[in-house]
């Protein structure tokens, strides 16, 4: 009986993490005035071993350009299921992309890193434009990107 209860408790815990253990997080990506077309941005997460864990948002509607987001593309093979329902428009130079979502608690302080790959037509691709460890202490701290992102912050 006891083992049955344990099994049930375990399966329940595995089924339900989404319902209980999450917190609202706002990801703010401000682009610099790089003077070009709208940027394609892939926001995704890798785990402590650097393995791809999942995508949070894809800014940019045409899948034929996704291979320019080269790190993301290498991790996913451009799999459309990875971005099903979480795709929006590309982001213009100087604009700010603000994403609010409920992020699983388990991602924080556990070695997960949030990455942004960026690409702009006729300009250089910038895989791993931003890479920030997801920690509760790091929330609210602005990080500068390598080429197109003026600042990136996650707030909880």
């Amino acid at each position: 009986m006891k083992s049955l209860l344990t099994t049930l408790a375990l399966t329940t815990a595995l089924t339900l993490p989404g319902l209980a253990m999450a917190r609202p997080v706002t990801l703010t990506t401000q682009l610099s005035n790089y003077g070009g077309d709208g940027a394609y941005l892939a926001l995704y997460v890798t785990d402590s071993s650097g393995a791809y864990a999942g995508t949070l948002w894809m800014a940019g509607g045409k899948s034929k350009y996704y291979d320019s987001l080269s790190d993301w593309y290498r991790a996913t093979g451009g799999d459309p299921a990875q971005i099903n329902g979480i795709t929006g428009a590309s982001v213009g130079a100087g604009r700010t992309l603000e994403i609010t979502l409920d992020l699983a608690d388990a991602l924080f302080d556990a070695g997960y890193t949030l990455h942004i790959d960026a690409a702009v037509e006729e300009m250089r691709n910038s895989p791993n434009e931003v890479a920030v460890p997801l920690t509760t202490a790091g929330a609210g701290t602005a990080v500068k990107g390598r080429r197109y992102v003026a600042s990136f912050t996650y707030d909880m």
């Binding site: 948002w57 428009a89 700010t96 603000e98 699983a104």
Partner: peptide, 24 residues
Amino acid sequence: SPAAPSTAPRNPLFGNGAPPTVLV
């Protein structure tokens, strides 16, 4: 955002399965 999602993302990272709110 033009393609703001109407359906929940199928992605384990999302705590509640609700789609993100996005603003440019």
